[in-house]
Amino acid sequence: MLSRTADHLYWLARYTERAENLARLLDVSYQMSLVPQSLAAQNENWRAILALNSLESAFAATHSGVNVDNVLRFMVADATNPSSIYSCLRAARENAHAVRGTLTAEMWESINATWIELRQQTFEQILARGISEFFDWVKLRSAVTRGVTFGTMLKDDALHFIRLGGLLERGDNTARILDMQYHILRQSDDEGASDFYRWGALLRSLSAFQVYRKVYRDAITPARVAELLILRMDLPRSLHACADGIVRMLQLIANDASAETQRQAGVLHARLHFARIDDVLAGGLHEYLTDFMDRIYELGDGISRDFLIAA
């Protein structure tokens, strides 16, 4: 397939997944802000979201203070913020538009309809209906797009590049969400009921709450949450599941130049496959997740070099 086509497909999937995970992250942050806490602590959480995307200075340039309204507006609807949900869905649609002939009609229509619906609502209307409803809508649209992708696309390289982009982005995003929330949760001294809601909200944001119950049938503990989201192969949003998918997709699209990228993906996968959560935590979760995100970044670089900018 054309390298440029593969590039658009890969980024179309990354931006779609990014928009969904941003909705997940903002939703959990919003849910947590409803748990009784000091205003300072709350605003600290919103500051962390900006830091997560290295957006502090861009935010400061247009907004006077960090608070829930400002950050939500900036991260949801600001067309000038390249990391906002608005911008991600726009980029997804632009990439799809560039290769719409490669997509099935259903897939293009799903992506285009998402964009048209998004543009029809102002941020005020979104707030008036309830911001959580909007996040649900983003997740639902992402699910619809994923559904028609799997349900209608031929299982050829086009689908493989879409899946590769989605998996890479999802792995990165799960690591980010976990890193940020884990950090905040570990800081709180309060070990009481509110922690239960916070861990619960984190799990829910990654669609893992019921899974947790089913797998552990026990109280929610930070170590188990980390184990579930990092090491469980059977949780679709876990780092392990993402790395496993990346390895398989790379095998399917392999070419003469891609041996090193495949090796790196294999290493990443092995490190998750054979890891124990105690060792991960002993070395520092933050360090572990940072290392994972660096490796994902390297993989993205390699994929770009080997497949997307071909000579």
Binding site: M1, L2, S3, R4, L308, A310
Partner: peptide
């Protein structure tokens, strides 16, 4: 068929090739 832009094609030895994920 492939929908190509000019930058997807190149000419070598008076022959036209397209850049693909599996090479020219």
């Amino acid at each position: 068929i492939e929908l190509v832009e000019g930058r997807d094609l190149f000419v070598r030895d008076e022959t036209v090739f397209m850049r693909t994920t599996q090479g020219p």
